[in-house]
């Protein structure tokens, strides 16, 4: 099997997005890169099962997600530990320094159940349609929609609480605004 240049380019082109998704799944850059590498190897070894003309990125995301989930089952305890440290790991990325708002966002994101987090990221950041996300997560479109909407509602709650706290002296005003004039 020689590596067809078009396939190679398509795989290469998907790597930045695969990494971003992988990091969002495992919260750890090194493990995410291993996961992406495994994904690439598995994809190329099974390239015959890819249907030309269909969405290569969605296919690769599906492989990556399945690999992550089987790894998760194998190393449940360890991965739970990683989940717990998710926000800390994210904070240690050098170019995130000084971006407090984004750090708060990561911390809030880390509190979501993983199925909601992955749905939100696929739709809100990776740019997949609900249908594509449903295909990647192997569930119904309605399930993706409800996960995304629950994720958004929960994040709003978490971030609203944060911003009210941040406003400090102004919090009474904010509370009145938020709660109506009672």
């Amino acid at each position: 099997m020689t590596l067809d240049p078009a396939t190679r380019d398509a795989v290469l082109g998907s790597i930045p997005n695969l990494r971003a998704f992988a990091i969002s799944l495992c919260g750890n850059v090194d493990r995410a890169d291993d996961l992406v590498q495994e994904t690439v190897l598995r994809a190329l070894a099974n390239i015959d099962s890819f249907q030309p003309g269909t969405n290569m990125a969605a296919w690769l995301f599906t492989i990556l997600r399945n690999l992550f989930r089987s790894e998760y089952r194998k190393r449940r305890r360890e991965v739970e530990d990683v989940e717990g440290k998710y926000a800390d790991n994210m904070k240690s990325q050098p170019d995130q320094e000084g971006r407090i708002e984004l750090q708060e966002f990561r911390a809030a994101l880390a509190q979501l159940p993983s199925d909601q987090r992955e749905a939100l990221i696929l739709v809100g950041a990776s740019g997949f349609s609900y249908e594509e996300a449903a295909e990647i997560c192997e569930c119904a479109v309605g399930t993706i929609k409800s996960r995304v909407s629950r994720a958004r509602a929960r994040l709003a709650e978490l971030l609203a609480i944060d911003s009210i706290d941040d406003f400090g002296p102004d919090r009474t005003t904010r509370a009145v605004l938020a709660g109506g004039r009672g």
């Binding site: 990325q93 950041a125 709003a156 911003s163």
Partner: peptide
């Protein structure tokens, strides 16, 4: 808040991309 969530989500993701 929702539009900020969308923004920050993409910002976080695009940092890696």
């Amino acid at each position: 808040i929702q539009s900020r969530i969308g923004q920050q989500l993409r910002e976080m993701y695009d940092d890696v991309v």
